[in-house]
Simulated scan of single mutants.
Amino acid sequence: MTDYARGLSHEPPLKPERPQFSSGPTVKFPGWSLDKIKTASLGRSHRSKLAKGRLKYAIDLTRELLGVPDDYLVGIMPASDTGALEAAMWTMLDPARPATVAAWESFGNVWIQDAVKQLKLPNLQTLSADYGEIPDLSTIPQRNDVVFTWNGTTSGAMIPNTDWLEPGREGITINDATSAIFAMEMDWAKLDATTFSWQKVMGSEAQHGMLILSPKAVERIESYDPSWPLPKLFRMKKGDKINTGIFEGATINTPSLLATEDYIAALEWAKSIGGRQAMFDRANANANIVKDWIEAKPWLRNMVADPAQRTNTGVCMMFQGDWYESLSAEEQADVPKKVVAMLEERNVGYDFNGYRDAPPSLRIWCGGTVEQDDIQRLLPWIEWAYETVKNG
């Protein structure tokens, strides 16, 4: 890498074979192609026996791969992770009960705004932290309902454990796990509503979310009738009981069967390589390559200061050093933009710029569908581009 940095005209010799490093939608699994997608359900009613069977198969594979307890419900929801998470909030958060919403990046702050401005919860505690940090979750009362994001998609900060949630706590927990699940083990016993989207760690097509409910969550939904209007897309009850059909393949609205088949293909691939542990191992190996590289570069730092809180999916890094710090704020913001533009132009790496609301940064997706060789080939190019911008 040193040679590449010294000779600005000397580009690294190898490019990633798959230059997709976006943090969502993420790169398809290795070997993916259109002929891997089964098409018999396409053009069929989603209420047909065949289509419902495929939707149920996607649910069953999800349960199997994630190790979801038998008495939990797993369902497909509209509108991606956002739809699943907001459906949980709208149907489970009772204004008569105390609640906490904790956030440490962009999407968690959206859930805070939902609680404050939309649901207008009167007994609300909000906890927030800057990018790269996590608030003190131990201050959350155990009787409170709590909404939190397991892994900060836009900051790279994750919770290292669930010790701050007591077993058998009074309040319910609503967990946005979209950039964590399939990369980190979920502590199901402490989770009541868990949501994620197909286009994150599994690299599948967007627009559908998953909602996983504990028996405690089902009891809350059945016993509580919200005072606010519920859009049809959020309604999970028939009469006073949970609509179990949603969790057996009868979706609330029309799903994309093409996207469903793509998700199934990704699940079958994950199962074929060893299931969720193999996915964890792949993400850890990928992320360690990037984290070690960041530590070896004096002009970079991980956005997350605490190593125990550093994600193994969307690893975020920031520039530092005398040259960078001598720039104006506007010039600093241009550095990652220029680096990304140079590498996208050369078909080396796509969409690895930091999130638009985050501090100026780069973000490399390291989830299980990414290959180690591609990450290893990307990093010298980032160094080359940085040195080119610095000396240009």
Rank of each mutant, 00 (worst) to 15 (best):
S223T: 12
I252E: 01
E268C: 05
N175L: 14
D71Q: 02
V218N: 02
T195Q: 07
A266Y: 03
A341W: 04
G203H: 01
R220E: 06
G349S: 04
A96Q: 11
P13R: 13
I134Y: 00
T313H: 05
G31I: 07
T149C: 14
P231Y: 14
A283I: 04
S106I: 13
K237N: 13
I174F: 01
A206E: 11
Y355Q: 10
I294L: 04
R18W: 10
T100I: 10
T126M: 02
A177I: 00
V218K: 05
A305T: 13
M77C: 10
E261N: 08
A250V: 05
T100M: 04
G108N: 03
E371G: 08
M342S: 09
D187F: 06
N312C: 14
A157M: 01
G275D: 03
A58Y: 01
K36P: 00
T91R: 07
T313N: 06
E170S: 12
A51D: 06
D281E: 11
T2A: 12
N353K: 12
R276W: 05
S227N: 13
P13S: 13
V68T: 05
I181Y: 02
F319G: 08
A217L: 07
E222W: 09
N288H: 14
D70R: 15
P167C: 06
G249M: 00
R169G: 02
E17I: 14
A265H: 02
Q118C: 11
G108K: 00
P359F: 05
T194N: 01
E64T: 15
G239D: 05
R356W: 15
G367I: 03
P30F: 08
I221S: 04
Y386H: 05
R346V: 00
E219V: 11
K216L: 10
A96Y: 02
Q142L: 15
G168A: 06
F319S: 01
P69E: 06
D130M: 14
V304Q: 00
N302W: 00
D225T: 15
F247S: 04
P141L: 09
A265R: 00
A157K: 02
L14D: 14
N391L: 11
L65D: 06
N161F: 04
F352Y: 09
G108H: 06
G239S: 09
P30A: 04
C316I: 10
A308W: 05
L65W: 06
K117S: 12
N347H: 13
A296E: 08
G321H: 11
G203V: 09
R377P: 08
S204G: 10
G249I: 00
S256Q: 03
